[in-house]
Amino acid sequence: MKLLRLLWLYFRLGILSEMEYRINFIIQLGQSLLSLGAAGANLAIVFSHTSSLNGWDPPALTVLLGIFFMMGGVIGFVIEPSLQRLMEDIREGTLDFVLMKPEDSQLLVSVRQVRIWKLFDIGLGGAVIVTGLLWSGEGVSAVNFSVFALTILAGTVIVYSFWMLLATLTFWFVKLENILVIFQFVYQAGRWPVTLYPAWLRIALTVIVPVAFATTVPAQAITGGLETEMLAGAILFAVFLFGVARMFWKIGVKRYSGASS
């Protein structure tokens, strides 16, 4: 598959680049462990006062934390660095080299920069998910696991499309670095189930900044608490948002090439 082939190519380049700066490896690993530790401590404090948060018990919240970490890893691994580079390239005019390659330009800009150390977060997240599941003592049925995989996929597509939409805005508004920082900030809300938040915030975190699909929904899926409608909704929303992002990208590139004037 084209996506995987290109992703592998850039992953290789990412490894090669990072090997030039070895000390980074230690720092990144330390950072990942530290932030996971802090998040775990947070959970421990909450559950020293109560045993359930709006229906979420400690193992379920641990699973959620794992998913939050994993998804953050996916974003930090390829989505964020690639799209940040895209924004720089649009500003500096170096996007030309991408557009001149005989390959789908959206695909290229989306996988072009890989931060390999973020794989730690993906791995750590996976380990935390497994820990949470073991802790709960309930096995995961094949159905729940498949639904979980689907929601993770849908969540990834939604988050990617959302970032892509934001990054594409650079074609119109040249200075937009801060917008991605805002997303990172809002994403932090995803470490708690969105069902904890008041209605307006819940809606905002589902539709405006679709954090819910990235974390809460997959967590519900694997713990067996996801309704079928929500699964269908996640998939449809993923397809829809991806379509919009794709269209928006094409319009943006056209504008970049000055079709408008």
Binding site: D96, L99, M100, K254, S257, G258, A259, S261
Partner: peptide, 8 residues
Amino acid sequence: LSGLLHPT
């Protein structure tokens, strides 16, 4: 000529 800009 290299396709990066659309002619008016």
